[in-house]
Nucleic acid binder design. Structure first.
Length: 718
DNA sequence: CTGAAGGCTAC
DNA sequence: TCTCGTAGCCTTCAG
């Protein structure tokens, strides 16, 4: 009667097993895999007691292992796969011709209706298709997609309709454009926000909320292999192809082939993944960073504010839908200013935002941190641009711009690292002055100077050592015959990691290269004193300490990808990035000029009308004295009524004429200024700000030097 | 030569 | 609350 309880005690704690699972009715049982614990709760509240006979629920926490790229050992030790095997009684390597030996007859994937949810479904499909392909090829679908409505439209007289994708909704709207506006539209924000009642509704009519995955043939396997296999080149090709499809997918019933899923739906995750991981050429920002900047400008974050407070404001103002912990980490990274991080940080780090001891991983918890915008932010992103940008909308609400246009390519100042689907990116940091100089050359149609990576306050050397390869070097010197002092590490090598390297050299498999290491922290930086082993001393001197002590690190320009209008573009040099950037920035000044001219013209016309009005009053053309206001208005041109509020004196007239003269002068100035000269003004402002902060830094360093007069003495050798 | 690890925004 | 494990790509380094 009841399900087979054999082995039930070893089933995972988080499983809500179907009562009939593993029994003679196991074939009629369905396992629901949910994305996260909150979706499991929704499923549980929707499944009434009688349904619990045949439905089991198991939550997945986090992303599922991509088995196609994993080693057998990794697959074996993966917790989720172990659990799944137990729950379904799956056996590796087994060919299934039916599901009779399993504890459940089919599996429903209940993932969120967002891009990451699609990815989760994809990873699960990938898992089954790789480990148990025979199950997906069974005539009756083994994998089922649970589809909750994303959008619901209601009408006064007609029956409500629901859509499970934005694409379906848009198709419907296009088809009946004339009447679409009669419907009111409701957007669901995903599984997490569904109510218990909605959960019940989904499971009462489960048939209209599911979609079967169908295996048609080899093309399905091939599509999955391209999306999840070990060949990124194939993936790049796939993304390029499906990123620009304007044709909509075929009819959407209650079935979908794996190939359709991959090419029409999974590709949307891929694009979202690129947009959050790879900056645009225009503003050098990833989507999350853009939301952060936007919110900081919008709420005018010029006073130190607790970081957790700011990050929750970002969620509200920019409709950031991911975890707040995540956005806090991004803000922390944007505010960090230790050597090797940002050349121009836009946010003030107040509190322990992390150090070069561990590349910033030692930052304090967000509740101990404060931040605010640095003044340079509004110099790089001028306020005057705000009206010229294009903004994203969500449910009709204005959000952050689709892209900003800082005055110089931010991505070259602060660099970029990111890992997306199909593409990753690495862009080194450069000297703002070099970038400015090259922009000026570009505008004057002169050849640009090749730039070498530059990191603020880095005292080591960086030079070109190959095609697309630059090497940064640490610094060290002999203190005495036995001791070498290492005072500077190459870019990207953190002191904690370097300690490990030195200890490895000390051990060196029983043949020590160095005898001893001592580490000194002088408050701002680390200094290592290394005692050379007698045996290797000569060799170390001959081959060079930098090489011997691993004080060289490469910085490559071979993987520079940026987004440009939703397409990935590869750059080979930083100068190429500048060339793609500054013409757009110049165009923005043309826009700005046009807009300012229009506003000025309006103001001048208004002034002229006011002056004319006052003159007419003065000459008696308009009679004012001793009359009712309503009488006078009848004789006035429409729009002139408000001029009655003016003080009707010649003093007022003279003042307005003075104002008019000023405005006319402004027009003259505007007409004589070109986009280029306006650009130059903004660049000069940024340059003077750079000089200010450089002065400040050198003063700070001077004070440090004074207070740290005690130099670090090497430890005496015994 | 192969495998692992680091970097970063997400679940 | 914090830690851990996962995706995704490319480069470096250890075995």
């Amino acid at each position: 009667m009841a399900g087979n309880t054999e082995g039930r005690e070893v089933l995972p704690d988080k499983l809500e097993d179907a009562r009939q699972a593993g029994g003679k009715n196991s074939n009629r049982c369905t396992l629901i895999l949910t994305e996260g614990d909150s979706s499991k709760a929704l499923a549980m509240s929707g499944l009434t007691s009688d349904k619990r006979d045949f439905y089991g629920v198991y939550p997945i926490t986090g992303k599922v292992l991509n088995v196609r790229k994993a080693s057998p050992a990794q697959i074996n030790r993966n917790k989720f796969i172990q659990d799944l095997k137990k729950i379904l009684k799956l056996e590796l390597q087994k060919e299934y011709t039916d599901t009779s030996s399993l504890r459940y007859g089919r599996v429903i994937l209940m993932t969120d209706q967002d891009d990451d949810g699609t990815h989760m479904s994809g990873l699960l499909i990938n898992l089954f298709s790789f480990l148990w392909p025979s199950l997906l090829k069974l005539p009756s679908s083994f994998l089922i997609d649970f589809v909750t409505p994303l959008i619901k439209v209601t009408h006064e007289t007609k029956e409500a309709k629901t859509f499970s994708s934005l694409r379906e909704f848009k198709e419907w709207k296009e088809k009946d454009k004339a009447h679409a506006t009669e419907w009111s539209v409701k957007f669901y924000k995903g599984l997490g926000s569904s109510t218990v009642e909605e959960g019940m509704l989904y499971f009462n009519q489960i048939d209209i909320h599911v979609r079967e995955f169908v295996w048609e043939g080899d093309a399905d396997g091939e599509a999955i292999n391209i999306a999840f296999g070990g060949d990124p080149e194939k993936r790049k090709e796939w993304i390029r192809k499906y990123n620009q499809v304007d044709s909509l997918p075929g009819p959407r019933g209650n079935k979908i082939t794996y190939k359709e899923f991959v090419n029409n739906e999974l590709v949307l995750f891929t694009i979202a993944n690129l947009q959050r991981s790879i900056p645009t050429i225009f503003d050098g920002l990833k989507s999350g960073e853009r939301k952060i900047i936007f919110t900081a400008f919008k709420i005018d974050l010029t006073e130190l504010t607790p970081l957790d407070e700011f990050s929750s404001l970002v969620s509200q103002h920019s409709a950031y839908h991911h975890s707040r912990k995540c956005i806090s980490n991004v803000i922390i990274r944007m505010a960090q200013d230790f050597i090797g991080r940002n050349n121009v940080n836009l946010f003030e780090p107040s509190g322990q935002f992390g150090t070069s001891a561990s590349g910033g991983k030692d930052a304090a918890n967000e509740r101990y941190l404060h931040t605010k915008l640095k003044p340079v932010a509004r110099v790089l992103f001028p306020k005057a641009d705000d009206d010229l940008l294009e903004y994203n909308l969500e449910y009709g609400r204005k959000l952050e711009p689709t892209r900003y246009f800082p005055i110089i390519p931010l991505v070259l100042l602060n660099g970029a690292k990111g890992i997306g689907s199909g593409f990753s990116t690495f862009i080194p940091q450069y000297n703002p002055r070099d970038v400015i100089a090259n922009i000026r050359r570009g505008i004057k149609c002169e050849e640009m100077e090749p730039m070498v990576p530059w990191y603020r306050d880095f005292e080591g050397e960086i030079k070109k050592t190959g095609e697309g390869v630059y090497t940064s070097y640490g610094k060290c010197h002999d203190v005495n015959d036995n001791t070498v002092q290492i005072s500077v590490l190459p870019i990207g090598l953190w002191t904690d990691d370097y300690k490990k390297i030195l200890h490895a050299l000390k051990a060196n498999n029983g043949d020590p290269l160095i005898e001893d290491v001592s580490v000194h922290n002088d408050g701002t930086s680390m200094v290592f004193n290394v005692i050379l082993s007698k045996k290797h001393k000569k060799e170390a001197r001959r081959e060079g300490y930098l090489k011997k002590f691993k004080l060289e690190k490469n910085i490559t320009t071979t993987n520079m990808h940026l987004l440009m209008d939703e397409m990935i573009k590869k750059y080979h040099t930083p100068e190429e990035i500048i060339k793609d950037f500054y013409p757009h920035r110049l165009e923005l000044y043309e826009d700005r000029k046009e807009k300012m001219a229009l506003a000025l013209t309006r103001e001048i016309e208004e002034l002229q009308r006011k002056i004319q009005f006052l003159k007419d009053v003065d000459r008696g053309v308009i009679l004012v004295v001793g009359r009712l206001k309503s009488e006078i208005i009848k004789e006035l041109k429409s729009g002139d009524e408000k001029f009655l509020e003016l003080s009707l004196t010649m003093d007022q007239c003279i003042e307005l004429e003075k104002e008019l003269a000023e405005k006319n002068q402004e027009v003259g100035h505007l007409n004589s200024s070109s986009a280029e000269s306006m650009y130059e003004e903004d660049l000069k402002k940024f340059e003077s700000m750079l000089s200010e902060s450089e002065d400040l830094n050198s003063r700070k360093r001077g004070m440090m030097a004074l207070s740290c007069q005690r130099t670090v003495k090497p430890k005496k050798t015994q």
